[in-house]
Design a protein around this nucleic acid. Sequence first.
DNA 1: ATGTCGTGATAGTCACGA
Length: 271
Amino acid sequence: MQLTVSTWNINSVRLRIDQVGRFLKERRPDILCLQETKCPNDKLPLKDLQAFGYPFVVHMGQKGYNGVAILSRYPFSETSVMEMCGRQDARHITVTLSREAKAAAGLTIHNFYVPAGGDIPDPDLNEKFRHKLDFMAEMRSWGSRAKPTAGPAILVGDLNVAPLEHDVWSHKQLLDVVSHTPVETEALEELRQEAEWIDAMRVLRPEPEKIYSWWSYRSPDWAAADKGRRLDHIWLSKGMKDTLRSIDVTRDTRGWERPSDHAPVTVVLEL
DNA sequence: ATGTCGTGATAGTCACGA
């Protein structure tokens, strides 16, 4: 069977519920992971999401900020959340697919929203940057301790780091910009390698191809300027490498009316 | 290159986070 998994920082699921529906209709993933839902659990437009063809929905949300959700055509046997950095701030949720998912049974999907980190890339001057580094350190120790890649697993999300030189429009100009500083890119690469996660995008589309999933709202002509960053990622456990068939960024959504500043990333696996 | 968004607390704008 083929399994299609998408990840999208939606920047308010209520404001853009119609865009979620349009994307699901056009791309038809089996599973969609959302970040920045920006709503409490009881305000999630659950009926709409289910009506799009996704009866199984889990959400860890809160008022105003953050929030992660997973929509699925297949049921879950388990779901849980981690309180990263001792905070209940809705930045992680995970599911394991049940036996009804057939060849995908037992597959675990982790959905993360890593802190953006503020503007100043110095943990002594900027508490938000410190939080971001602490968060990645905790992801690394989790990878070492919990062995999340021991079985079939996918880690997706807005990791808020563009790790490689060609994950940004200008490597030199962004070396001092939060999301591409060496301390961040090294931390992300180390935590990825700690659990031997595979960066699915770069397996099929290696450097030096430029690949982005985010374009700032502040760029007036985002498409022409194309000053993007690859902040959204799909990682596979090492045992799943041979299942990888395709991966893409749905850049079109960024051109929709009142868009999210992130575009969805979608992987197709043959299980 | 300090620009553009979304939410929430408020009552027309402003703070905050991104």
